[in-house]
Design a binder for these strands. Structure first.
Lengths: 157, 157
DNA sequence: GTCAAACGTAACTCAAACTGTTACGAATGA
DNA sequence: TCATTCGTAACAGTTTGAGTTACGTTTGAC
């Protein structure tokens, strides 16, 4: 009962571009952070480019960068860029049109599914790349502290 | 970027049981409305039974019925019954732990994904089987009107 | 102008997930 | 006793997705 992993990878890519804001990153470099093939990265970056979130420059010295400041890009933007169709899948076979329920259930479900997806997307709008970057930093903080503590311990000797 | 169709089928099944409330329906009968194999229906009904939404009776004259009134079963109940794991999928490969972003992005994403899924589920809580049944009836109303109109036309002759 | 670097995209492979199907034992009521 | 129905395992065919290879195009440095 899952979506594919493109949304997670898309956010990863965008967060990396936000972290290195101002620099031009290659798909090879990004692939090194995501641990995958550069083509996989370029595919998703293609979606993000079509959504006007990033720009690419081919050729020597080329690569990718954000089109706007990280605080102006939301998770909803990334979601819209990589999602295809609707979140919920209908029956594969069309239900029995002779049935009082089967004949109308899909039309009814479409409404409820749209409402649920809208609630999801409303939540995604409220988070920006800056928020993601801030949370990554907050999580990595203890690790940095540990590094500094280790540094001090070595310095004592 | 889809979930599987079990959620849609589960709601279909539950709505049918709500429509025929009080009766015991067989997986074969339900399969006739959904237009699929009875085993597919029994698989999903098994999930719904584990979630205490339906009860089954094996043997001759057996079948399925709801454990509560339709207005006491929500789409969230159905969702919880058939969903497996989380809605959003993480990277298949673990990101590069040496990277300042890759090392922490999944932990950060887990938080945002949980929030988004919670928003989705909050919306699902607000809809009951009675609501679904009411919408099916509202949609089918024009059709019933058409049938009655046809009936009147025939009666005139 | 030449060339190395990087994008853009098509084509392919392998694995996983899902639906549908068959099969068969267990339970049940007539 | 027996037909009916659940419960579940096992399997096939299809679809989807990630990863990979390949190759043409674009670009900047020299």
């Amino acid at each position: 009962m899952n979506t594919n992993s493109r949304f997670a990878v898309a956010i990863h890519i965008l967060t990396l571009l936000a972290y290195k804001h101002g620099e031009t990153l290659t798909s090879g470099y990004i692939a090194g952070s995501v641990t995958t093939n550069p083509v996989v990265i370029r595919r998703i970056l293609g979606d993000l480019r079509r959504a006007d979130l990033v720009v690419s420059h081919p050729g020597n010295g080329g690569g990718w960068r954000l089109t706007r400041l990280p605080q102006l890009i939301t998770l909803f933007d990334a979601w819209t860029a990589v999602k295809e169709g609707t979140l919920f899948t209908m029956h594969h076979q069309r239900p029995n049109p002779e049935c009082r329920i089967g004949g109308f259930i899909q039309q009814a479900l479409t409404g409820f599914f749209t409402e649920a997806e809208a609630a999801l997307e409303a939540q995604l709008v409220s988070t920006t790349l800056s928020d993601v970057l801030a949370r990554v930093r907050a999580i990595s903080w203890p690790t940095v502290d540990a590094v500094l503590a280790e540094h001090d311990k070595v310095a004592e000797k």
